[in-house]
Design a protein around this nucleic acid. Structure first.
Lengths: 208, 208
DNA sequence: GTCTATATGGCGATAGAC
DNA sequence: GTCTATCGCCATATAGAC
C-alpha cells in the first residue's frame, strides 16, 4: 500500500530526530507521534514496541556511518588530502547534527547490546580499513601506528562537537557564533596539526 | 546531628554512582536508595526531588573538575612535562571512572541549564587559564593557538575513553585487555604525537 | 530521622470501533 | 490503516506512624 511506506517513513524520520535529541530513555512515544503527525497507537501498529523502534533507527544510523567510512579509503589520494577530506566532511555533518555524537557515544555505552546487532548488521570490517591505510602511511614514510592516526583524528574532530555546550560556555563565554567560527577554523588547523605531527614520524625507524 | 551528615554522605555517594552510570533519565530513586542502604522516602526527606538531588551531585562533580584544571597551571614546569602529567593523570582517572566522560558530555547537552549553575558555582575562569598558557607556549617557541593546544589534547585523551565500547568492539574485536593496553599505551603516544606537532609550530611566524 | 503505606501522574501498550 | 478510550505498570512523591 502507498500509505504504508509513507507513514512508516514519517515515523522513522520523527523517531530519528527525537531519539537522537533525547536518547532512548528520554524519548517519548507521544512526542514521536506528534512530530510524525499521527496517533500514538499507530506507532505500536508499525513497530510493536519502543525498543524495536529504537533498534530499527539505531541500526540504520550505524549502517550509514559504516558506509561513509568505507568510501574514505579510495586509492590514489594522498594521506594529506584524505585527512583534509575527512575532517571537512565530518565537521560539516556534525555541525548539522549537533546531537549525533553524544547520542551514539551514549547509547552505545548504556546499551552495549545494540552494538553487536547494529555493527554486525552494518558489516563493518576494521581489517579491511586498517590494512590499506597502514600500507599507505608506510609508503609515504609516516611510521605511525594506523590506530593512533585514525583515533587521534576522530578525537580532534568529534570531541569539540560532542562537548559543544562546555566549549561554547566556558571557552567562548556563551558566544555561539564565536564557537561555530572556531569549529570551522578547525577544518584547517586540525589538518595542520596532524601533518606537523606526521612530519615527526618520518624520522622514526620503521616499527612493526 | 551525627546521623544527618552520615546519611547524607551515603546518599550522595550512591546517587553519584547511579547518576553517572545511568544518567539523569535512566537513574531510579529506588536504586539509589538501595545502594545507600536506606529507604526511598528518605531520599526525598534529604533532597526534596530527584532533580534537586541531581543538581547537587552534578554541581559538586563539576566543581572538582574545575579545581583539577586549576592545579595544572603550576609554574616552572615545561610544556612537555605538563602534557605528560596531564595525559597520564586523566587517562588513569577515566579508566577508573569509565562512565564519567559520557555522563558529563551527555547531561550537559541534554540539560544545558545545569551548565550555567554548575560551572558558575565552580567559578571557572578560562582567561586565568589560557593567558599564562599562551605565554608559556610562546616562550618555548610554539606558535600555536592555545585553544587548539588544549582542545586537541583533551580530545585525544577523552574521546577514546568516551567511545570505549565502539573501539573495544570494532578495533579490538571485543578484546577488553587489548583495548585497555592500547589506552595505556596512549599515555606515551599522545605526548609523542603532540610534541611532534609542536615541533612544526616552531617554524611558524608568531601570530596574534 | 527513618520507616510503611499510599497517592498521583505519566508512559508504554492494547482493545476495539470505524 | 487509523483513530479513541483505556488498561496496567512503574516511578516520583507524600502522609503519617514510630
Amino acid at each position: 500500500m502507498e500509505k504504508e511506506l509513507l507513514t512508516e517513513e514519517k515515523i522513522a524520520e520523527a523517531a530519528r530526530e527525537v531519539f537522537i535529541e533525547k536518547g532512548m530513555n528520554g524519548a517519548r512515544m507521544q512526542e514521536i507521534a506528534d512530530k510524525a503527525g499521527i496517533n500514538k497507537s499507530l506507532l505500536h501498529y508499525y513497530f510493536r514496541t519502543k525498543e524495536k523502534l529504537f533498534a530499527f533507527i539505531f541500526s540504520k544510523l550505524i549502517h550509514r556511518i559504516g558506509d561513509r567510512l568505507e568510501n574514505l579509503m579510495q586509492e590514489g589520494v594522498s594521506i594529506e588530502d584524505k585527512v583534509k577530506g575527512y575532517v571537512e566532511l565530518y565537521i560539516d555533518i556534525l555541525l548539522k547534527n549537533p546531537f549525533l555524537p553524544n547520542f551514539i557515544l551514549n547509547e552505545v555505552t548504556r546499551n552495549p547490546d545494540a552494538i553487536f546487532e547494529g555493527f554486525a548488521a552494518a558489516k563493518i570490517n576494521p581489517q579491511k580499513f586498517f590494512a590499506p591505510l597502514e600500507n599507505q602511511l608506510k609508503a609515504e614514510g609516516y611510521n605511525i601506528d594506523p590506530r593512533d592516526f585514525v583515533i587521534n583524528i576522530l578525537s580532534m574532530v568529534i570531541f569539540p562537537l560532542a562537548g559543544r555546550p562546555i566549549l561554547e560556555h566556558i571557552v567562548f563565554n556563551g558566544d555561539k557564533k564565536a564557537y561555530k567560527d572556531y569549529i570551522l577554523s578547525r577544518k584547517k588547523s586540525i589538518v595542520e596539526f596532524v601533518m606537523f605531527a606526521l612530519e615527526g614520524y618520518k624520522k622514526l625507524e620503521v616499527r612493526d
